[in-house]
Design a protein around this nucleic acid. Structure first.
Ligand SMILES: [Mn+2]
Ligand SMILES: [Mn+2]
Ligand SMILES: [Zn+2]
Ligand SMILES: [Zn+2]
Lengths: 147, 147
DNA sequence: TGTTAGTTCGCACTCTTTGCAGATTGACAA
DNA sequence: TTGTCAATCTGCAAAGAGTGCGAACTAACA
């Protein structure tokens, strides 16, 4: 995703207005690596700008996505997650706490796929699931507390 | 997924009853390759057994899934899809019509993943998206009709 | 045939996201 | 600065996908 300053120009160049709500969200998403949900962003935004609406958060996020500045990620935990990282990358989700991290997979664009039968592939997304370090050590602590 | 006859035994062996609704759903899912949604199955089931409830379809499907007989697939088109194919395989979804097909990816269990940072991976699922043969030829037809 | 634990079904309700419309305001020009 | 007006914001209703609950029902077994 571009920087807030660059987005300001891009928005105006496209006939879109740069409102305080949008500027706030530009800032909250820039460099954000946690893959937040709309609700999570709404909570952060509300702390800094009481009165901002969830509707506006959704609006701005989908605007950014349709401009290619944001990727929408579905890790199967219910709500869509928003990702300012537009590199070619994939994700791993902790099945215990839901944390999502970026991972880079070598050769993910030249996988050998069988059974296509004429289907033309345009994109591949890999979702790993497992256990994050925090949840792994929590499990260990609980086990030793028991035993 | 096991055959309807085998499932009948398995269910009874686990203290679960084999009702007409369940038998119908066993039959509808066995060998089914279309990755139907609960609603789609409900429509098929209703045609053969008027009065069956959507609630029961969901119930039976999640029972089968928790017994490992069915996989739940999320291809990002809204509703969960149910898959009796328990082989190690992946999916491709047509971004135009939503059709889902099985694909087999060589070496999908030994991908080189960078950025894990302690995260322990237990599973990988690859979702390809693209255009199915039907939608591809539809596009061609429309183009030649225009031009 | 009786007993009873497991099922079915309808309905209310949650969660996430979108549609709508009136009130508001950013951007640009005079 | 001020005016204009399209774009935006907000609140609320509503849609789509599931799930929790409980009264009525029934498969399984003695
Ligand atoms: Mn990411
Ligand atoms: Mn499949
Ligand atoms: Zn975790
Ligand atoms: Zn298609």
């Amino acid at each position: 995703m571009k920087s807030p300053a660059e987005l300001t120009e891009t928005f105006r160049a496209n006939g879109l207005k740069v409102t305080p709500q949008r500027q706030l969200l530009f800032g909250l998403m820039h460099g954000n690596t946690v893959h937040p949900t709309a609700e999570a962003l709404f909570a952060e935004a509300s702390a800094r700008m009481p009165g901002i609406s969830l509707r506006t958060v959704y609006q701005t996020l989908t605007d950014l996505a349709s401009m290619g500045e944001l990727r929408l990620i579905d890790v199967g935990t219910g709500a869509t997650r928003f990702d300012p990282n537009t590199d070619d990358h994939h994700h791993v989700v902790c099945s215990s706490c839901g944390e999502v991290r970026d991972v880079y997979v070598a050769g993910s664009d030249r996988l050998k796929v069988d059974g296509l039968d004429g289907f033309r592939i345009e994109e591949a997304s890999i979702l790993f699931s497992g256990t994050c370090v925090t949840c792994a050590s929590d499990t260990v602590s609980r086990a030793s507390a028991r035993g």
